[in-house]
Simulated scan of single mutants.
Amino acid sequence: MTELKQMPGHLIRRYQQIAVAVFHRQVDPLGLDLTPVQFAALNTLRVHKDIDQATLAGLIAYDRTTITGVIDRLTAKGLVDRKISPTDRRARVVSLTAEGEAALDRVMPAVEEAQTVMLQGLDAREQQVFMELLTKATEATNDLSRAPLIPLATPEPTEGAE
């Protein structure tokens, strides 16, 4: 019989618990009341301006139904703005507010420190290998998730373009 400490699923669940605890330990003192998923949404909205909620859910590998609650909370905090899409009245376009930008600027050093703390048991080379293997395993099993990561489609290069 295999011990729990030798099962990747158990260790991944434990590491997720640790990652969330470390995130909150670093971020909560700032008084921003952000969860890791809310941070992921804000950070993604900084990179991808004015995207619909379904696209945001795909970019952060979050359930399309549950993303509505995340956006509701971020809207209530004044960090994002949500409007009806001009091209599809069923869709909602989400964007960062000035307050959202300021909150991201304020929280980013704490989030970066959290990443350092999460990897503190590994030397620099081990951290690189760990991240490479974690990325490889996650990408290989992405389609097995209830909420797979769905990257934005990249446009095909046009003929003759450099």
Rank of each mutant, 00 (worst) to 15 (best):
M1W: 04
E3M: 09
E3L: 15
L4N: 12
Q6E: 15
L11G: 03
I12T: 02
Q17K: 11
I18G: 02
V22A: 07
V22L: 08
F23M: 10
F23C: 06
R25N: 07
R25E: 09
Q26I: 01
G31I: 05
L34K: 06
F39S: 04
F39V: 06
A40I: 00
L42A: 03
L42Q: 03
L42T: 04
L42D: 00
N43Y: 07
T44P: 01
L45C: 03
R46V: 06
K49Y: 01
I51V: 12
T55K: 08
T55M: 10
L56M: 10
G58I: 02
D63F: 01
D63G: 11
D63R: 12
T66N: 13
T66A: 12
T66D: 05
T68R: 14
V70C: 07
V70I: 15
I71Y: 01
I71Q: 00
I71L: 05
R73P: 03
R73D: 07
R73K: 13
L74H: 05
T75A: 13
T75G: 11
K77N: 04
V80I: 04
V80A: 00
V80C: 06
D81P: 03
R82T: 11
R82D: 06
S85P: 01
S85L: 02
T87A: 04
T87G: 02
R89Y: 02
A91H: 08
R92W: 08
R92F: 12
L96G: 06
R106S: 03
M108K: 10
P109D: 03
V111C: 06
A114K: 02
M118R: 09
L119E: 02
L122R: 04
L122H: 01
L122N: 00
A124K: 10
R125T: 14
R125S: 11
V129R: 12
F130P: 01
E132W: 00
L133W: 13
L133Y: 11
L134K: 02
T135S: 15
T135R: 14
K136A: 15
T138H: 07
E139Y: 08
A140L: 07
N142M: 05
D143E: 12
L144E: 14
L144V: 08
S145K: 12
L149H: 14
I150G: 02
I150M: 11
I150L: 13
P151G: 06
L152V: 13
A153P: 07
T154G: 07
P157W: 08
P157Y: 05
P157E: 11
E159P: 02
E159W: 04
G160K: 04
A161N: 02
